[in-house]
Lab assay of single mutants.
Amino acid sequence: VPQRAWTVEQLRSEQLPKKDIIKFLQEHGSDSFLAEHKLLGNIKNVAKTANKDHLVTAYNHLFETKRFK
C-alpha cells in the first residue's frame, strides 16, 4: 500500500504541479478508480481537463477507499 506523498497543504499549493498528482494517481489507483474520476489517459490531457480541487478530492478518495492497483 502506498503512503501519502503530500500533506493537504502541499496538495493545495501552487508549488505542486497537477501532473505530479495525476502521475501518482495513475501509478497507484485501480483502473476502475481512475475511470470513475476521469483520470485515465495521457497525463497532459488529463491535466488540461482536471482542476486541482478534483485531483485533491481523488487523491484523498484513493486513500479512503484503498482502491489501489
Rank of each mutant, 00 (worst) to 15 (best):
T49S: 08
Q3P: 08
R4Y: 07
H28K: 05
T49G: 10
Y59F: 04
G41C: 05
L62W: 02
I43P: 12
D31R: 14
H28V: 08
V8M: 09
H54Y: 08
H54C: 10
S13F: 03
L62I: 05
H61P: 00
F63M: 03
S32Y: 08
L34Y: 00
E9S: 04
L25W: 00
R4D: 07
D31M: 13
K44R: 14
E36Q: 12
Q15N: 12
K69T: 06
K19V: 13
K44F: 12
S30N: 11
R67P: 04
Q10N: 05
S32T: 12
R67H: 07
K19C: 13
F63G: 01
Q3N: 11
L16R: 04
N60W: 06
L25T: 00
K69I: 06
K19D: 15
I21G: 00
E36F: 08
G41K: 06
F24C: 04
T65F: 14
K23P: 01
A5Q: 15
H54W: 11
K69H: 07
K66Q: 10
T57M: 13
F63K: 02
F24L: 02
K44T: 14
L34N: 04
K52V: 06
K52W: 07
T49W: 15
A50Q: 09
E14C: 09
K52D: 03
L34M: 04
D31C: 14
H61F: 09
L16F: 10
L34P: 00
R67M: 11
H37I: 03
L34C: 05
F68P: 03
R67Y: 06
K18Q: 06
Q15E: 13
E27Q: 11
T49R: 14
A47R: 14
G41P: 05
T65H: 15
K69E: 05
A50F: 10
F33V: 00
L55Y: 02
V8I: 10
H61D: 15
W6M: 02
K18R: 09
E36P: 01
P2M: 05
L39E: 00
Q15F: 11
E27P: 00
N60S: 08
L40K: 09
V46T: 06
I43Q: 06
S13E: 06
K48S: 12
I21L: 05
S32I: 08
A5F: 12
T65L: 06
V46D: 03
H28N: 13
S30Q: 10
I21Q: 01
G29V: 01
F33W: 08
